[in-house]
Every structure is written in C-alpha cells, then in structure tokens.
C-alpha cells in the first residue's frame, strides 16, 4: 500500500528536479484566422434552448403557466399509457398540482421519499418528473442538482422523463452554468443532462434510450 506522504514526496521531487519545462505553445494551426466565426449572441435563450433540445431528439415546450404544464404532463401520461409516475418531492411540483388529476386518470403517483422499495418504484415507473435548477441554451442541457427529495434515479430509470422549470432559469452557455458552481459548496451530485440517452457503439447507428430515458421533455414556464 502506497503511503500518501511518500507518494506525494516522490512526485514533488520529480517536478522540482526536472529540468525540462514545456515552453512550446500549442501548434499554430489553431491560431485565429480571418475566416473565424464571430461570437454569436443568443438573443432569446429559452427559444434557443428548445431548438437545441429538439435537434437532439428531445421535446421542448414553452408554457404560460403551471396549469398549462400540468395539462401537458396529463396528456403525456395518457399518451404513454403510464401506470406509475415518480416525482421529486419539492415545492414547485406540489404547486404543479398534478398528483390528484393523474391519480384520477388512473396513474399512480409516487414521491421520492423515504419509502420501502423506493428504488424498485423508480425502476418500475413509466415516467419520472423533476424540476431543473438551470438550463443551458447553447447546448439544450438541463442542470440537475440532487439532494433530499431530489433523487438521481427519478431522472434516470423511467423511460420517459419530464422536467419543469421557469423560463428565466435558462442560461446562455456552458461556462455560465459551470460558473454557478465555482464558488461555495457543491451538492454531492450535479448533472448536465442533455437530451435523450444514446449510444452509437453498434456501427455508429444511433440508439436512443440506451440506459437512461430516451423520451425527454422539458417545459419552460413563463
């Protein structure tokens, strides 16, 4: 078993003793030329977000209000003939008030709480429903922060996944999103989730829904 002090000491010794200092700049081919594309301004981040997500095979939707979002979820549950929906246990989704209408439509609703067999419920669910902390316009990504009531499995195990968040939470680009976590304490898990899970391992043919959800919907409110 390697001892930490010795391990680091040996590395330190090598970096200090080494005479070679890489000084070469990276190859010049990448140096900006005249035909370099200009920096593009994203005028309307929610619109761009939806465009990018759709290009990846996801579904983006803009809703005026939570009521409209609720109807979307109800319609989707009906269309997918869902029997079980699992959702984050957070205030925003309480406000959505979709649980009762869903149950009336014959869809069982489970909340991500300390219940026996919680993982099996998520694995059996047809739809996972969560909020998102941020979204990224440039890439069509959702930024998910996990924590109590905000299970990772909800966004991963069901074949259909829906996220609802306010439209003013859409950031422009990836660096902006990363910047949000550059200060302060990070949650144990943050994920940039971008469109349906996919694989190209078999002859580069696109397989959608490989291990995660293949049917991804994001509803922006407002």
């Amino acid at each position: 078993m390697a001892d930490r002090t010795k391990f680091l000491e040996s590395i330190r010794h090598r970096t200090r003793r080494g005479r070679y200092k890489p000084t070469k700049s990276p190859d010049s081919v990448w140096t900006p030329g005249v035909d370099r594309p200009g920096r593009e301004e994203i005028e309307d981040p929610p619109a761009r977000f939806i465009e990018e997500l759709e290009a990846l095979g996801g579904h983006g939707e803009r809703a005026e209000s939570l009521e409209e979002a609720r109807d979307y979820v109800l319609d989707l549950a009906r269309e997918r003939e869902a029997e079980l929906l699992v959702r984050w246990d957070v205030g925003y989704l309480d406000e959505l008030a979709a649980d009762e209408p869903l149950r009336e439509a014959g869809v069982e609703v489970a909340l991500w709480r300390d219940l026996p067999g919680l993982r099996e419920i998520a694995a059996r669910a047809d739809i996972g429903l969560s909020t998102g902390t941020w979204a990224i316009a440039e890439t069509g990504s959702l930024v998910l922060e996990h924590g109590p009531g905000r299970g990772r499995s909800v966004t991963l195990l069901p074949p259909t996944y829906v996220a609802i968040l306010p439209a003013d939470r859409v950031l422009r680009a990836v660096p902006e999103a990363i910047q949000k976590y550059a200060r302060g304490t990070l949650p144990a898990n943050v994920c940039f989730h971008t469109g349906p899970s996919r694989s190209g391992d078999i002859e580069m043919s696109l397989v959608v829904g490989m291990h995660g959800p293949g049917d991804v919907h994001v509803i922006l409110i407002g």
Partner: peptide, 10 residues
C-alpha cells in the same frame, strides 16, 4: 457540443 450526461460527483 456536450455529451448527454456530464456528471459531477463530489
């Protein structure tokens, strides 16, 4: 532009 799951575990 970005992979589907860019996951940060702390």
């Amino acid at each position: 532009k970005i992979t589907v799951y860019t996951n940060f575990i702390t």
